[in-house]
C-alpha cells in the first residue's frame, strides 16, 4: 500500500500530531520479532481517517446539553468530539513535555515516552482540559481498532494484525464443512480491500478463495 500516496497523507491531523501519534502508537503495539508495530501498520493513517469522518465528529452521537461529567457508569459525557479531543490533548501533552523536559513528546527518548504514556494512563498528568486517562483510553481504543480492522480503513497494513493472530479474514465457503474440525486451519488472510480491488478471486457464492499456509512443525 506504500505505493499509494493517499495512504501516506493526512486529512485532519497536523504535522506535530502525526509525529506525536507515530511515536505513541509504536509503544502501544511495538515492532518486534512477531511483526510490524502500529506505526508501520498504518495506525496513524487509520486514526486520521476516523477523526475526519462520522465517528470523529460524533455524527451518530447524542449531542445536546446540558453537559455534566456523570458517573463512570454513564459513559462518554464530554461535549467535545474525538476530533477536538485529539487536537486539544496532544497540544496540552506537548506543552507539558516542553515544560518538564524542554521538548515535545515525539522528541523524548524512548523510555521517556514510555514513562509519559504510563503516567497518562494512570491519570498522573494533570492536563488543563481533560483527564489524561480519558485521552489515553481513546488513543488505545483507536490503536487497537486500527491495527485489527480491515486494511480498508488505512491501518492493519499487510494485514499485520491478522497475521499476528492467525485470523484468516473473510470466511471461506469451506467453513461450512469445518465447524466440527479439530484440525487447525491456517490460511493467508483475505481482506475486504483484497476482494474489492480484485487481488483475491471469489467463488460463485462470493466467498474468497483461501490459500492455505503450510506449517511444518510447531511455530
Amino acid at each position: 500500500m506504500s505505493d499509494n500516496p493517499i495512504g501516506a497523507s493526512y486529512v485532519y491531523l497536523l504535522e506535530p500530531e502525526v509525529r506525536f501519534l507515530e511515536a505513541a502508537v509504536e509503544h502501544l503495539i511495538p515492532t518486534d520479532e512477531l511483526g510490524p508495530g502500529a506505526r508501520d501498520a498504518g495506525v496513524v493513517v487509520y486514526i486520521d481517517r476516523q477523526l475526519a469522518g462520522s465517528w470523529g465528529t460524533h455524527g451518530r452521537q447524542y449531542r445536546s446539553g446540558p453537559w455534566l461529567e456523570g458517573t463512570p457508569q454513564q459513559g462518554y459525557q464530554s461535549r467535545f468530539t474525538p476530533q477536538e479531543v485529539y487536537r486539544i490533548a496532544i497540544r496540552e501533552i506537548d506543552q507539558h513535555c516542553r515544560k518538564a523536559f524542554g521538548r515535545p513528546f515525539a522528541q523524548l527518548a524512548s523510555d521517556g515516552q514510555l514513562r509519559m504514556l504510563q503516567q497518562l494512563e494512570s491519570d498522573e498528568i494533570a492536563l488543563p482540559s481533560f483527564s489524561s486517562k480519558f485521552f489515553f483510553d481513546l488513543l488505545w481504543r483507536n490503536t487497537d481498532e486500527g491495527y485489527f480492522s480491515d486494511p480498508l480503513y488505512g491501518g492493519n497494513r499487510g494485514m499485520a494484525g491478522w497475521k499476528l493472530l492467525g485470523f484468516p479474514g473473510l470466511p471461506s465457503g469451506q467453513y461450512r464443512d469445518l465447524i466440527s474440525s479439530s484440525v487447525p486451519y491456517h490460511a493467508e488472510p483475505v481482506s475486504i480491500l483484497d476482494v474489492q480491488t480484485g487481488r483475491v478471486p471469489i467463488d460463485a457464492e462470493g466467498f474468497p478463495k483461501h490459500v492455505m499456509i503450510k506449517r511444518d512443525k510447531e511455530q
Partner: peptide, 8 residues
C-alpha cells in the same frame, strides 16, 4: 459480500 465482513 465482501462488505458485510466489517467488524469496525
Amino acid at each position: 459480500k465482501p462488505n458485510v465482513y466489517d467488524e469496525l
